[in-house]
Design a protein around this nucleic acid. Sequence first.
DNA 1: CCGTATCCCTTAGGATACTG
DNA 2: CAGTATCCTAAGGGATACGG
Lengths: 122, 122
Amino acid sequence: MEKTDTRQVECATHLASVEDAIYVLGGKWKLRIMIALVTGYHRFNELQRAIEGISARVLSSELKSLELNGLLKRVVKADQTPVVVEYLPTEYAETLKEVIAVLGNWGLKHKKRITGKISQPA
Amino acid sequence: MEKTDTRQVECATHLASVEDAIYVLGGKWKLRIMIALVTGYHRFNELQRAIEGISARVLSSELKSLELNGLLKRVVKADQTPVVVEYLPTEYAETLKEVIAVLGNWGLKHKKRITGKISQPA
DNA sequence: CCGTATCCCTTAGGATACTG
DNA sequence: CAGTATCCTAAGGGATACGG
């Protein structure tokens, strides 16, 4: 079997790539925050309200992590009276749309499958 | 602004869906195990060797979780001399291929972006 | 409103050792 | 080979309170 090597390499490559993705997007909150962000929620408290269950402390630290990875930009508008801070998805965040769509889709179908539980053939 | 409601609902739906997906596929190992599985690694120790860094304890518990979610099937071949156990991806696991592909792809590009670090325009 | 600081608890997951 | 048992640490994340 000489294809073994090829397969091993392919597997290792896949492994490394999703590892990278998980490193950046993994955890309970990061993708959810990105969803809220691209949906149009930009203010801190707005985000906290949209993402049920997240605490200010966690939201804050996750936002920093996401900014470091270039997925959002923290913008301070000093010209307003009570300084307005906005978290805006970057252009780069667009690349996540596919990820979110695919993952969300899978989650949706999976839930149906689990709850519906049609007798699947083995 | 009367589209707000629609947007809120859409966001909530997305949120719930990826939440479900993360619940099933989240964590450091589950997706990696599925990759190894569909790549063709089926035996316990084989998997442990393919997925660098995973301990027997974790591999074992993750395999159970994945089986519960219908993504793999544990098959015992009692007809061999030293009983052979195989973990086989189910048909359903096919639905993950897209997820893995998209996520892996994103991870790959992201790594290039981070390491290469071409001056991106804001 | 926009966060940070503290404190604490739970969980994921690593190390090692051991059994059928 | 295929796991389980134990133990332990680190990190994630919740609650509350507080400051700019």
